[in-house]
Amino acid sequence: MSDTRQQILEILGGHMSAILARSVLSLSISWSKVDPNRLRPGDDNRLLAELEKGCRLYVRDDTLRQTCMEQMQTLLTINGHTLPPPEEPPRLTRVPVLGESDIVDARGIGRLVCNKLGFSGAMQIKVATAISELARNIVQYADKGEITITTLNGNRRGIEVVARDEGPGIADISLVMSDRYNSRTGMGIGLKGTRNLMDEFDLKSTPGKGTEIRVRKYMD
């Protein structure tokens, strides 16, 4: 796919210095939360509005600015329409974790949901990695369980992942999560890593009954 970012930069570069053009673009992207390379319907206008604000700072001449805006509009409209309309991710996805092969599925599904939600590449990988850890935890310690992926649409858009199992449970959570603990298979590392990757981490476990780990990652 042609790089829309680069094309916008070229247009902006015709009216301002390269470094300002980059600044205006990254500014507009961060403001509108739109990825130019993955435009959804309506995104083009949101991005254009921000770009115009940026151009107003640096392109003083009205006619020039208008030309610049028109060029970008044409570009974004053409690039925007080649993509299919976005699919809203399902609010809740259940992934049964019954064996080792389900780990790959679970993190793949998690990444897909994040992608549809519009998470950045880095965030998608973080969530997928966390899901991988949680699923592996289930496989290694409880044989089977379930992972639920829920999209959060409240004040803060994001994703919640809950891993449940009816395994032996964790006797001493604080020990597992401490820096000293390092299990033979690396569970401590996996869970601590997950906690570091996520914005919220909540671990509940009853020995003999099972474990529930609830993590959240927000978009902003």
Binding site: I19, L20, R22, S23, V24, S26, L27, S30, W31, K53, G54, L57
Partner: peptide
């Protein structure tokens, strides 16, 4: 204020 905010961001960016 918006311009200031944007400029602040631009400065940070730069």
């Amino acid at each position: 204020l918006e311009i200031i905010e944007r400029q602040r961001f631009a400065i940070q960016e730069l």
